[in-house]
Amino acid sequence: MELEATGLLLVAIGGALGGMARLAVGDAVARGLGSAFPWGTLVVNLSGALAMGGLVGALGLPVDMPGLSWQLLAIGLLGGYTTVSSFSLQTLTLWQQRRPLAALANVAVTLVAGLLALLLGWWLAGGAT
């Protein structure tokens, strides 16, 4: 995929905004629910999957070159908002704390609920019509 300068700028702006939103949402959820389990990252990733499903339902999947809206919102904003690296680190931390059930639950809930959230967002945006 080759991006033009405008697309790169949109991805950078979206990524910066998404990263700031991830920090704000993750911290707010962790303050409310505690840090014994990575609730903040889970909420961020599930809400990001829901939003991505909404984008797919509204904009469709880019076939060749993604448009500017897709570059800003999907690649930039949601790419900066959701986080596989934090999810992976927190899962490893749970495992190292000898909490294998919590680690496995984090993986299972993130993957299964993430796919369901994406499908729900797609459906809510009219993707099923």
Rank of each mutant, 00 (worst) to 15 (best):
M1Q: 04
M1T: 09
E2Y: 13
E4D: 15
E4Y: 05
E4C: 06
A5F: 14
L10H: 06
A12P: 04
A12M: 11
A12V: 01
I13P: 06
A16G: 15
A16E: 06
A16S: 15
L17T: 01
L17C: 11
G18H: 10
G18N: 07
G19C: 09
M20V: 14
R22L: 00
L23V: 06
L23W: 14
G26S: 15
G26M: 03
D27R: 10
V29M: 10
A30C: 02
G32V: 03
G32S: 14
G32A: 15
L33W: 08
L33N: 01
S35K: 13
F37C: 04
F37K: 09
P38M: 07
T41C: 03
L42E: 01
V44G: 14
V44R: 03
V44S: 13
N45G: 03
L46V: 13
L46N: 04
S47W: 05
G48R: 09
A49R: 01
A49S: 15
L50R: 07
A51W: 07
A51G: 06
G53E: 07
G54Q: 05
L55E: 09
L55I: 14
G57N: 11
A58V: 04
L59V: 02
L59H: 02
P62Q: 11
P62F: 07
P62L: 10
V63F: 03
D64G: 09
D64V: 14
D64E: 14
M65R: 15
P66R: 12
G67W: 06
L72V: 00
L72Y: 01
L73Q: 08
L73E: 05
L73Y: 00
I75C: 08
L78Q: 09
G79W: 09
G80Q: 06
G80H: 02
G80P: 04
Y81V: 02
Y81Q: 05
Y81S: 08
Y81L: 08
T82I: 06
T83V: 05
T83R: 05
T83E: 10
T83N: 13
V84R: 00
S85L: 05
S85P: 04
S86A: 15
S86F: 00
L89I: 15
T91V: 05
T91Y: 05
L92F: 09
T93R: 12
L94R: 01
Q97C: 02
P100A: 11
L101R: 13
L104C: 10
L104S: 14
A105W: 02
N106G: 00
V107Y: 05
A108M: 13
A108G: 14
V109Q: 02
V109G: 01
T110N: 15
T110S: 15
T110Q: 11
T110F: 02
A113H: 01
A113E: 00
L116A: 15
L116C: 12
A117F: 12
L118I: 03
L120I: 10
L120V: 15
L120Y: 01
W122R: 11
G126M: 09
G126A: 12
G127E: 10
A128E: 07
